[in-house]
């Protein structure tokens, strides 16, 4: 029977997490043994021998109290420091990461690639290449968990979060939803397939796709009528979206924001939240309820492509093409 006691380690961060975990286990084992041993030895050695014996009291010792407060705390600080290092590493995707988008929905994972491929409960990634996953939820809170990569991130409705990993070993590994999300929570599972780069290129090109994610977004953009105002309008009712993504936007209320994923999403679903300077509120209707989270992501990738090339629908988004992005602020998800 398949009976593992240790999870597979298949990402660059997994080894470090394992080492820290082993360190924690060792320190804890030593501590626990010491306490057990002391209790055991005292219980035997000082067992009551005469019914009426009364041992002399020991009131305490300041030196001991200080010692057993400070030393454990110093050891704990090493846990803290090492754990924090991994946490910060997890929070900072390398600039050359390829993008993947995962939308959680009761009870499945919908995966999209910039190249336009879409999958349900399956994620394909190449070995040795950083992958940045932008996660979003269609309904309740989910959590995207890949035990073999030792990473997990909650998927919270109403916002984007990012997580990243570099897979190190070809194979198939579990994807679990780790945040309880209703009836079929335990069925919200899938597989990540890690492939050699050549196999991955084959996989990418073999899919019969209806255009890249940016092209899918462009179609949405036209269907929903966004293009009338945001690209063609000459009367100045709406900001032209060419070159907007990644830039700083001056708002009517005096604030400046960076046009990142979260900003574009909010502008689609709640257009009055941030009005660009020089424009009026209540011009654009909300698209809340008319577009799914997946479609919003397609629109974002399209708007992003407008920034890179200035040409609508250009093939900016070959898988991993994100590497050419200018210094893009990190999602603004904090």
């Amino acid at each position: 029977m398949d009976f593992p006691l240790w999870p597979e380690a298949a990402s660059t961060v997994a080894g470090d997490v394992d080492n820290l975990y082993i360190y924690l286990v060792l320190v804890s084992a030593v501590m626990t043994l010491l306490i057990f041993l002391a209790v055991f030895v005292f219980a035997i050695k000082y067992r009551r021998r005469k019914a009426d014996e009364v041992p002399a009291p020991i009131h305490g010792s300041l030196k001991l109290e200080i010692t057993w407060s400070i030393i454990p705390f110093l050891v704990m600080l090493t846990f803290f420091w090492w754990g924090a290092k991994i946490f910060f590493l997890n929070a900072t995707p390398p600039p050359d990461s390829m993008d993947v988008y995962a939308v959680g929905k009761q009870w499945m994972w919908k995966i999209q690639y910039p190249g336009g491929q879409r999958e349900i409960n399956e994620l394909h990634v190449p070995v040795g290449r950083p992958v940045k996953v932008t996660v979003a939820s269609e309904d309740v809170i989910h959590s995207f968990f890949i035990p073999a990569f030792r990473i997990k991130h909650d998927v919270v409705p109403g916002r984007y979060d990012t997580m990243w990993f570099t897979a190190t070993k070809p194979g198939r590994y579990h994807i679990f939803c780790a945040e309880y999300c209703g009836t079929e929570h335990s069925g919200m599972v899938g597989w990540v397939t890690v492939m050699n780069p050549a196999d991955y290129e084959n996989w990418v090109s073999s899919g019969g796709i209806s255009g890249s994610m940016a092209q899918q977004g462009e179609r949405m953009f036209e269907q929903l009528g966004c293009s009338t105002c945001h690209l063609l309008d000459r009367q100045g009712r709406c900001p032209n979206l060419r070159g907007v993504y990644g830039s700083r936007v001056q708002l009517a209320d005096g604030r400046t924001v960076v046009a990142d994923d979260a900003y574009v999403r909010e502008s689609i679903l709640n257009p009055n939240a941030k009005i660009v300077q020089g424009y009026k509120p209540d011009v654009m209707p909300s698209f809340q309820g008319q577009v799914t989270e997946e479609q919003v992501l397609q629109l974002i990738v399209y708007v992003k492509s407008l920034a890179i090339t200035g040409t609508p629908g250009a093939t900016a988004a070959a898988p991993g093409g994100a590497g050419r992005r200018t210094t893009q602020p990190n999602g603004g998800n904090q």
């Binding site: 961060v13 975990y21 803290f80 754990g83 946490f87 997990k152």
Partner: peptide
């Protein structure tokens, strides 16, 4: 309470 390890362990 250790950040990097909690990422893996939480909700398990």
């Amino acid at each position: 309470g250790t950040l990097g390890v909690d990422v893996h362990l939480t909700d398990t």
